[in-house]
């Protein structure tokens, strides 16, 4: 067993210091409790909870999943039990077990995000950071997600920032072609870190019934299929040196995680790999530590953005 807390694995993202670069992605790890039956998940740098809204959300009609070549399309629809459930049911366990929690919150407008932030203010000492999930369609904005509108990204971040003292992370979607503008707006609003990439919009059709395979018609694609897209987006955003990046999208092994860091990710997000390898957190961390040892890398942060792409 390797020493997971050695200084060589720690990474810094704004004022956030993680003991290692492994971050569990929102929606794929719940709050870590289920996975703690498989291994001690307090070893990972951070666990991003699934996104909690102010009130419970039922989610989308099924079918919600469809496997595609090396990918998974999902249209879960952000089903969750509401923020009070996290505070009352999950937080006592995650605190007791020493999990490093990034709380993901989800709103349809600024007022929902502000209300969420007020609720979180009392528990913020138990969290590393909050991550803003801006993917929810906004009715007043014609169904566009808040995360695709630059001024909304800035306004929501500012509103949450005003209420909370802990760092704010903004998760961005690759379905926008103005990522650097969105990242700048997040920074203007006071965000310290960008999470990139959320899922890629996709679709699949049953050729016998002529029906879409997802109940919601379209969904978000994740898995190895999107890894090259994620790498390019991270590489391009990193060059602009706007904010540190938690890079995610199709990481399945430690080699992928190293690639993401070379492209410019300060930390790496493990998403749907958790469904396939229920020990992914420790396996990928072990792989990174072995890689460091084999390559004589003393600090993993030394490789961030070091791809030779001149």
């Amino acid at each position: 067993m390797n020493n997971y807390t050695g200084s060589g694995t720690s990474v810094k993202l704004g004022s956030i210091i993680l003991k290692n670069p492994i971050v569990m992605c929102s929606g794929t790890f719940s709050s870590g409790i289920e996975y703690n039956d498989f291994y001690d998940v307090s070893i990972v740098g951070a666990i991003t909870t699934k996104s909690f809204s102010l009130k419970p959300r039922a989610g989308n009609k099924p079918p919600r999943l469809c496997e595609t070549p090396a990918g998974l399309l999902n249209s879960i629809g952000l089903q969750n039990e509401g923020i009070d459930f996290f505070i009352n049911e999950h937080l006592p366990y995650t605190k007791k077990s020493g999990f490093n929690i990034i709380l993901s919150i989800l709103g349809t407008d600024i007022s929902e995000f502000s209300d969420l932030a007020v609720k979180i203010r009392n528990i913020e000492e138990s969290l590393i950071a909050v991550e803003l999930n801006l993917s929810c369609p906004n009715v007043e904005k014609g169904g566009m997600s808040l995360g695709s509108i630059p001024e909304e990204v800035e306004n929501v971040t500012t509103a949450v920032r005003k209420i909370l003292n802990i760092p704010v992370i903004v998760k961005l979607s690759p379905n926008n072609n103005n990522l650097s503008e969105l990242a700048r707006r997040a920074k203007n609003g006071g965000a310290e870190v960008i999470s990139l990439i959320n899922t890629v919009i996709g679709m699949s059709i049953d050729i016998n019934t002529f029906k879409p395979k997802l109940g919601n018609i379209t969904g978000g694609l994740s898995g190895p299929a999107i890894k090259p897209i994620a790498l390019a987006k991270i590489f391009n955003l990193h060059k602009e040196k706007i904010l540190p990046i938690i890079g995610m999208g199709g990481i399945f092994g430690w080699e992928d995680a190293v690639e993401f860091m070379l492209a410019g990710a300060n930390a790496v997000g493990l998403g749907m790999v958790n469904f396939v390898d229920l020990h992914a957190g420790e396996n990928i961390l072990d792989g990174i530590i072995n890689y460091m040892s084999n390559k004589n890398i003393l600090n993993i942060s030394d490789i961030i953005g070091k791809v030779k792409a001149e």
Binding site: S30, E34, P62, R64, N74, I76
Partner: peptide, 11 residues
């Protein structure tokens, strides 16, 4: 997908 109640895919 996950088989352990995390992803809410199989509802």
């Amino acid at each position: 997908a996950c088989g352990i109640g995390v992803c809410k895919g199989c509802v």
